[in-house]
Amino acid sequence: MGLLGSDRRPDNIILGKLDDLINLARSRSMWPLTFGIACCAIEMMNSSAPRYDADRFGFFYRNTPRQADIMIVSGTVNKKMGKRVRTLYEQMAEPKWVISMGACANQGGPFRQGYSVVEGVDKIVPVDVYVPGCPPRPEALLQAMLLLRDKVADPEKRYIPGTLMEADFDVLAEPGKDGRSL
C-alpha cells in the first residue's frame, strides 16, 4: 500500500474516504520502536510508565523495526551509531516517522563540537517532530507523539515521499576525511 495521500485524487470520493480512514487508523495506532540510545531513553521508558502511560493513546512499543511505525531517536547519535540508525530506519516498513528526542538528536546538544558526534540526526534520517529539552520530560515526548498523530491524520500536513531527504553521509566520516578542513 505504501504512502497514501501523495497521489490521492480529490474527485474520487470512495478512495478519498478510504484514505482518510486509513490515515485516521494510522494516526491512532502508532507503534514506536524500542530503541533507546542515551539519557532520553530513560525518559522515553518513563513515558510508558504509570504516571504518563503512552499506551493510553495507542502507543505500543515493539522491539523489531519491521513492526514499528515511529522511530524515537532518544539520545546522542555518534558517527559509529549513525550508520546503525540509518539501517534501522531503512529496515522499518512504510509508512514510517521519526521523532528526534532531546537536544542531542536535534543538533548535537552539549556534545555538538565533539569529534565523534553527529550534529543532529536529521542529517541521516528525515525527522518529523523535534522535541527540545535535555532530556525532555515525558510529557514533552507525549506531546510530540500527539503532534505527530495529528500530522498523520491530516494528509495535507504529511511529508511528500518524493522529497524524502537524501542523507548526508559525510557527517559519518572521520574528521579530516570528510572533505572539510579546519
Binding site: 500500500m1 486509513i22 487508523a25 491512532r28 495506532s29 499506551d55
Partner: peptide
Amino acid sequence: NRYGPMHNGPAGAFQTIADAVKMVAKEDF
C-alpha cells in the same frame, strides 16, 4: 497501575480496530 487504551473511541474501544486497519495498510515486506 496504569490506564491502557482510553483515548481512541469511547474508553479506547476503537483502539484495536485502528491497529488492525493500520496493519492492513502497512507495507507488506
